[in-house]
Amino acid sequence: MAADSGEPGTLRPGGRTARVRAAVLQAAGDVLAEGGLAALDLADVARRAEVGRTTVYRRWGTPAGLVADLLADMAEQSLPRTETGTLLGDLEANARLVQRTLADPRQGPLFKAVLAAAAFDPRTAAALHRFYEIRVGEWAPCVEQAVERGELPPGTDAREVVRAVSAPLYYRLLTTGLPLDRASADRAARSAAAAARAGAFVTPES
């Protein structure tokens, strides 16, 4: 169990409290997917979750506090990395996981809403940064192992390679009406792998 950081919604309790948290976060995610941050009203979330409004206001305080805890929970629940034994196989697994998430009828709109909210809400932005640091950190060892196997040059920035896999998929999601399919995911993985092999992500020596 994580220690209480003093931030609303950051305690990780068990029992009934955990069930209340799960119901509230599920409701919050539904609201975000349906209407974005502007629609995230704590009283409405409490009603949907069948939880007392006082409980929601006391534990999360603000919509931003609720979004922060939702992102923390999403990071905790995300699937672990897949290790295939090759750089390309690992990056394809990562890209396909991102693609499935962003193409999901609920998760895709939810991520769009959170990304939009982070542009003007500092607390949401901080929570989003923590979410992606956790996810990138989960997959970075796949790239580090590729360096150890000799597939990539020494000094390759593992985190930047992982980010390069996801970037084209988010760009496609946010700037086009084109579908996010497996072909898009595999193309992103191949491009990142080719760039990494060419040394594009080697950190310059200071």
Rank of each mutant, 00 (worst) to 15 (best):
S5P: 00
G6P: 03
P13I: 07
G14M: 09
R16C: 01
T17A: 15
A22I: 02
A22V: 08
A22N: 06
V24Y: 01
G29A: 08
L32H: 10
A33P: 06
A33F: 10
A33I: 08
G35M: 07
D41G: 12
R47T: 14
R48C: 09
E50M: 02
G52M: 08
R53W: 01
R53T: 13
T55G: 04
Y57F: 15
P63R: 04
P63I: 09
P63S: 08
G65T: 01
L66R: 00
D69F: 00
L70E: 00
L71C: 11
A72M: 03
D73G: 06
D73L: 10
M74R: 13
S78R: 13
S78P: 00
L79G: 07
L79A: 15
R81H: 03
R81D: 04
T82V: 15
E83G: 05
T86R: 05
A95Q: 04
R96T: 09
L97Q: 11
Q99G: 07
Q99R: 14
T101V: 12
T101L: 11
L102A: 05
P105G: 10
P105S: 12
P109H: 12
P109A: 13
K112A: 14
A116C: 07
A116Q: 15
A117Q: 02
A119Y: 08
D121H: 14
R123Q: 15
R123V: 13
E133R: 15
P141M: 13
P141Y: 12
C142E: 12
V143N: 04
V143I: 10
E144R: 15
Q145V: 11
E148P: 02
L152T: 06
D157K: 03
R159D: 11
R159M: 06
A164D: 14
A167Y: 05
A167K: 04
P168H: 04
L169H: 03
R172Y: 02
T175N: 05
G177K: 12
R182Y: 09
A185T: 09
A189H: 03
S191P: 00
S191F: 02
A192W: 01
A194N: 12
A195W: 03
